[in-house]
Design a protein around this nucleic acid. Structure first.
Length: 559
RNA sequence: GCCCUCGUAGCUUAAUGGAUAAAGCAGCGGGCUUCUAUCCCGCUGAUGAGGGUUCGAUUCCUUCCGAGGGCACCA
């Protein structure tokens, strides 16, 4: 496996400067070279020299060391950058590697590290929301990219199918059936009505002695009230299985897959992991009893004490989740969680929590993402699962299509809230960036087909004559440079989990290709040039396919 | 009140402390006898406000203003 161009440049700088990990970036304008490094600033600070002098010195040394092999020019530029221009030979060699590697270009070597990515994990108390979709697309793409980078990745969905919210779900349905009075905290919306219809017919759920008169006797008969609690739970569990089925169906529509489904009820609670976690904390002397509840004595997040076991004897979400995370770290070296921004308050406590068990908090990466707002007629459409006014992910995908939804959601960095204008997404679909990239792909395919017709025979007889060195126009060069960034991009995403980098890369690759398409031709050129260009176009097609595969976006054959 | 995230061009967004802040959309002006003009080229235009640290700040610190979210024996 050959090293990426950026890695090679870093190595060269490192050799002559002694800086271990010199920063190297892509040049943004022609004047900045193909690659550039600000490493001279770092050295000048340490050695109290002028940055430009240091840069000049380094540029000269690098030029001498390299002997024109990798670079055609290495120059210092004020205020102290070193700019690198790749030689034609280096570009040609890289393109040859690229063509030869095909889909393995940029693929990382097998790593020992096992990574768990836990995402979506929406409670089975309603359909998947747009926010779930954002986390879902992000998790799925990140899993693909990390796998491509060489890691052993497990995609996990943690199903909170126990605890209070399932009971609330059950109660919501009972209220809908008119058995108990409705409450503010209950789930509402069309899907609750649907569930009530189905659940009402499940006679076995109502086997307990509760009869029609129940509603009148609540609160007067303790035994009856207790049975009602059981009934809420039973109904809730039943509804949760139905909703989980629906969620799985939405995931199929969204083309998101999981390797492992962990059930809070079966895999965590029933296995005694919660009890054990509590006992272990008690053994460490970290638990204190107060007001009939058990509290974590150690200060978490610097301010608030956390309840572990409530005075009614049930466990808190925090304790259960801690038990779950502890289990994950038994198997995985690294755990990545994708959480909606509304859970940010749990980040510190969870990191502190795993530390209590001697787990390095660095092994737990929590990616927060801001919510998705739906805009219609310039106004926000309020979304709340409880109130039942929300656009489910399924509806959105149906309205604007999977690829557009996915591309749009992944294009933004997670820290930014997405305002999704439904009208714009539908009306101006041709302006959508995903079409821009798909169009570039369609054009590559078209060229490949047309040129096969025109040159197929000659190519079969003269394949060894394809001379990539003939590709030396500005557009050829720009396109090869774009393609060559891909391995570095993968390693950047592996480091910071910024999937949106790949989308932006796709857009600039598509741009470079459209430009190339406008200025250069394949069919109609002389045989040797046509075939060299055809190889380049083929490489672009493979690069787009690869990125689309990683993102789970369809490859369209026609526009 | 406390905590978190965010504030960049008319709009939507980029920029591990580095160069003249980068794109798309919208607007204006050009470009198809030729591999799909759903494309290409050019122009216009921005860091919420004030301090501070730094050779250098969109980035770090601080005050203020604004948006969203979180602050339960909910999950």
């Amino acid at each position: 496996m050959s090293q990426s161009i950026r890695t090679r440049i870093q190595k060269i700088i490192s050799d002559v400067s002694g800086i271990e990990y010199p920063k190297v970036v892509f040049g943004e304008t022609d004047a900045q070279g193909d690659y550039a490094s600000p490493v001279a600033f770092e050295i000048s600070k340490r050695e109290h020299k002028a940055p430009l002098d240091v840069a000049n010195d380094l540029a000269e040394k690098i030029g001498k060391t390299d002997q024109g092999k990798l670079f055609s020019r290495v120059e210092a530029a004020p205020p102290g950058f070193i700019n690198f221009w790749l030689s034609e030979e280096a570009l040609k060699t890289e393109l040859a590697t690229l063509v030869k590697s095909g889909k393995t270009y940029g693929k990382g070597e097998k790593q020992k590290e096992k990574i768990q990515i836990e995402f979506i994990s929406a409670n089975p108390t309603g359909p998947l929301t747009m926010a779930n979709g954002r986390g879902g697309f992000l998790g799925a793409a990140l899993a693909n990219i990390l796998t491509f980078a060489g890691y052993k990745v497990t995609r996990e969905y943690y199903v909170n199918d126990a605890g209070n919210q399932v009971k609330v779900l059950g109660a919501s349905i009972l209220a809908e059936l008119g058995i108990i009075p409705a409450e503010e905290r209950f789930y509402k919306g069309a899907y609750i009505k649907d569930l009530a219809k189905v659940t009402g017919k499940q006679k076995k759920l109502f086997k307990t002695s509760i009869k029609g008169e129940l509603a009148n006797r609540i609160g007067t008969d303790a035994a009856m009230a207790e049975q009602l609690e059981v009934l809420k739970m039973d109904v809730g569990r039943y509804a949760a299985t139905l909703l989980l089925k629906e969620i799985k169906n939405s995931l199929r529509n969204a083309d998101i897959t999981f390797d492992v489904w962990t059930s809070e009820e079966k895999d965590i609670r029933k296995k005694g992991l919660v009890k054990k976690t509590l006992a272990d904390l008690q053994a460490k002397g970290l638990v204190v009893e107060r007001d009939g509840a058990l509290w974590l004595e150690k200060e978490i997040a610097g301010e608030k004490e956390r309840v572990l076991k409530k005075s009614d004897g049930t466990y808190t979400y925090y304790l259960v989740d801690l038990a779950y995370h502890r289990k994950s770290f038994e198997t995985y070296d690294k755990v990545i969680n994708l959480w909606g921004a509304d859970h940010h308050g749990n980040v510190q406590p969870m990191k502190e929590g795993v530390k209590l068990f001697g787990i390095d908090a660095e092994r737990l990466a929590i990616i927060m993402f801001q919510p998705v707002r739906l805009i219609e007629d310039g106004k926000e459409v309020k979304m709340s699962k409880r109130a039942g006014e929300f656009i489910a992910l399924d509806e959105l995908m149906k309205e604007v299509g999977l690829d557009v939804t996915k591309f749009f959601f992944l294009m933004f960095t997670p820290g930014n809230r997405i305002d999704f204008d439904l009208k714009l997404a539908k009306d101006d679909s041709s302006k959508n960036p995903v079409f821009y990239v798909q169009y570039a792909y369609v054009r590559t395919k078209s060229i490949l087909a047309k040129s096969k017709e025109a040159y197929g025979k000659w190519l079969r007889a003269n394949s060894q004559k394809v001379n990539l060195g003939l590709l030396n126009t500005k557009e050829d060069r720009k396109l090869i440079l774009e393609l060559a960034k891909f391995p570095d991009l993968i390693s950047d995403i592996t480091a910071d989990y910024e999937v949106s980098r790949l989308l932006r890369h796709l857009l600039s690759l598509a741009r470079a290709f459209h430009d190339f398409y406008e200025k250069e031709r394949v069919v109609g050129e002389k045989n040797d040039i046509a075939l060299a260009r055809r190889a380049l176009v083929g490489a672009v097609a493979v690069a787009i396919e690869q990125a689309f595969d990683l993102l789970g976006i369809q490859k369209r054959k026609k526009m």
